Amino acid sequence: MSRNVTVTLKLATSLDGRIALSNGVSQWITNSKSRARVHQMRAEHDAVLVGVGTVLADDPLLTARTVPAPDTQPARIVADSKLRTPRQSRLVESTGLGRVILAHDDHADPSPFGATGAETWAVGSDGSQIDLNGLLRRCEAEGFNRIFLEGGGTLAASFLAAGLVDVLAWFRAPILIGGDGIPAIGLLGLDRMEQTRRWSLTAREAFDDDCLELWTPI
């Protein structure tokens, strides 16, 4: 991967690292001040990236809703190997607000999105998912050097396992959800402690009882 592209992984969780209840309910874990900070961070990046699972579950808009609004909205990218994003999703129907990009493997058929205004990028595949390095190379070619990765857990785990996360921005709310909640990070496939990676705390911000910590890999 070209290191000209910086990936910031944002997590917003309970104290025990959960992003939703077992039934999928997730609004709202963090408070309104934390959410406003997320919108500010989106505005500071060239592109916001999520996995297709997040789109199917939440139908997010992913715009930076700051006051005042940014001069240019970040591009909104979906890692969607099989192009399962609905044509009627809020993302696809909001291309007038800014670029919407569906990154897929080489075998998916992009023709259903031809008249929607959404862009489709064939970035190759790596097993069952898109080629993350291929995606970041395309991002760099498009001038997207600051990527804000917002999940979900499977995509977050894939970037972490590949060593492609440069900054971890972790918002935590003072609640506990428990082991039956949905974890922020999917399976990493580790079986030895020496495979784990250590992180260095570089900054901390407080939003009432919520906390944002910024970490970089050591």
Rank of each mutant, 00 (worst) to 15 (best):
L136W: 07
L164Y: 04
K10N: 12
V55K: 10
A141L: 06
V78Q: 00
G134Q: 03
H39I: 08
P217R: 05
G134H: 04
G163P: 15
D131R: 06
R137M: 12
F171M: 11
M1Q: 07
D105C: 07
I19L: 15
R3S: 12
A75P: 00
I147Y: 01
L9I: 07
E205P: 09
E213L: 15
D208T: 15
A162T: 00
I218G: 05
T63P: 01
A75W: 00
S81V: 14
R198T: 12
V5I: 13
T154A: 10
P174K: 06
D166C: 12
A157R: 07
P68L: 08
T6C: 06
A36I: 04
G179I: 11
P74W: 04
H104T: 09
V25H: 08
T120K: 10
L135N: 00
A156D: 00
A64T: 14
S158M: 13
L155D: 06
V100K: 00
A173E: 13
D126G: 01
D59V: 14
T120N: 14
R37W: 13
S89H: 01
R3E: 13
G186Q: 11
I175F: 03
V100C: 01
L21G: 05
T95E: 02
S111P: 03
K82M: 13
C211H: 10
G53C: 07
V50T: 11
T116F: 08
P74E: 11
T95I: 13
R192W: 02
L56H: 05
S32M: 08
L15Y: 06
D71Q: 13
L188S: 05
V48G: 00
L91S: 00
L149I: 11
T54I: 11
I177V: 15
M41A: 06
V38W: 03
L91H: 00
N4K: 12
V50M: 04
E213G: 03
V67G: 01
G117D: 09
P74F: 09
D208E: 15
S125G: 14
I19Q: 11
I19V: 15
A184T: 05
L164D: 06
D126T: 05
D105G: 15
S2L: 12
D210W: 04
L188R: 08
N4W: 03
A156R: 00
D109Q: 02
S111V: 13
A64R: 09
L132I: 14
L62M: 01
